[in-house]
């Protein structure tokens, strides 16, 4: 029941996004002016009008746009003169690789920081953890990227400056993209852990003389991790949008960089396609997280 309802609202969201994208792209002016050269004749305009379906009323154009999009036809890029979908599919692995490595980094770091700040409450560990979290939340990602490049690539020469290659190329972009999202998850996990460690079953486990590390890392963490879990969806969303900025800083060939290129060249079909693909991934992740959460927590299922 929950799943069906969520599927419905995900569908509504996607429709809303497609409508926003469609309206915005139609408000941007006559697409023919961008596609045709300045020597084009009136007949060329007429021909393109028919081919693009611009002679039809707006609602019909939107219908055609939707029907095409469902069939995977997102139009043709004005600049590259290639199908938008091909361009996006070429760049998708890059973004997924970066988002994946950042997601793993964020989860590992926030579990480490969250548990440490909860276990060593009121000591320097908590202070240090809090400082890392709040600075990470406050630092402009694009500037952090530049500083990291300056220090580790230009000055020390340890890591490559830009581009995609082996795992060495992943280090700086991953750090940059992870910094902003780390704080919120660490805080959530830390307070969930603190709560879990005060629970009755912890006292019981201690009485049973379960080793302390096992109480913390197994008994408490298992209960604490569910609370920040819904936040994982938000983080994945942040990673995708964050990829636009980080890919720009590091010249990383992904969809984010593609989106920026589309913005700079005013390539509307490409931009439209990128936004739609981003939206599908975004909504899909939120849906998955909600369904997984309902599965993990039986209270929500009913």
């Amino acid at each position: 029941m929950v799943v069906v309802k969520r599927l419905g609202s995900a569908f509504v969201t996607l429709l809303a996004i497609s409508l926003v994208v469609f309206v915005l792209s139609r408000m941007s002016g006559d697409p023919r002016e961008l596609m045709l050269s300045e020597y084009a004749t009136a007949e060329d305009y007429e021909l393109l009008n028919e081919r693009l379906g611009l002679d039809k009323p707006y609602y019909a154009q939107y219908g055609v746009f939707l029907a095409d999009a469902v069939r995977g036809d997102l139009g043709e890029s004005i600049q590259a003169r290639q199908p938008v979908l091909t361009l996006i599919l070429q760049r998708l692995p890059g973004t997924l690789e970066l988002a994946g490595s950042a997601f793993v980094a964020i989860i590992l770091a926030s579990v480490l920081l969250g548990v440490a700040t909860a276990v060593w409450r009121d000591t320097w560990v908590e202070t240090a953890g809090n400082i890392v979290a709040v600075v990470g939340q406050s630092v402009p990602a694009f500037w952090l990227g530049i500083v990291l490049v300056y220090v580790f690539a230009l000055t020390l020469g340890w890591l490559p400056m830009a581009g995609r290659g082996g795992w060495l190329y992943l280090v700086l972009p991953t750090l940059t993209i992870a910094a902003n999202s780390l704080a919120a998850l660490t805080r959530l996990l830390s307070s969930a852990m603190t709560e879990a460690m005060d629970a009755e079953y912890v006292k019981f486990a201690n009485v049973k003389s379960v080793p302390p590390w096992r109480v913390t890392m197994v008994h408490c963490l298992k209960n604490a991790i569910l609370t920040p879990f819904t936040y994982a969806g938000i983080i994945l969303g942040q990673l995708l949008t964050g990829s636009i900025i980080v890919e720009t800083v590091f010249g990383w060939p992904g969809i984010g960089l593609l989106a920026l290129q589309a913005v700079q060249t005013r390539d509307y079909p490409l931009l439209q396609g990128v936004v739609l693909v981003f939206a599908i991934i975004y909504v899909g992740i939120a849906l998955l997280v909600d369904v997984a959460y309902a599965y993990l927590d039986p209270r929500i299922r009913h």
């Binding site: 915005l24 792209s25 995708l240 920026l260 005013r266 939206a279 975004y282 909504v283």
Partner: peptide, 13 residues
């Protein structure tokens, strides 16, 4: 649930 930064980019363009 919208990817806000992208929508903002499109709108600003």
């Amino acid at each position: 649930s919208l990817p806000s930064l992208l929508v903002a980019l499109v709108a600003l363009v």
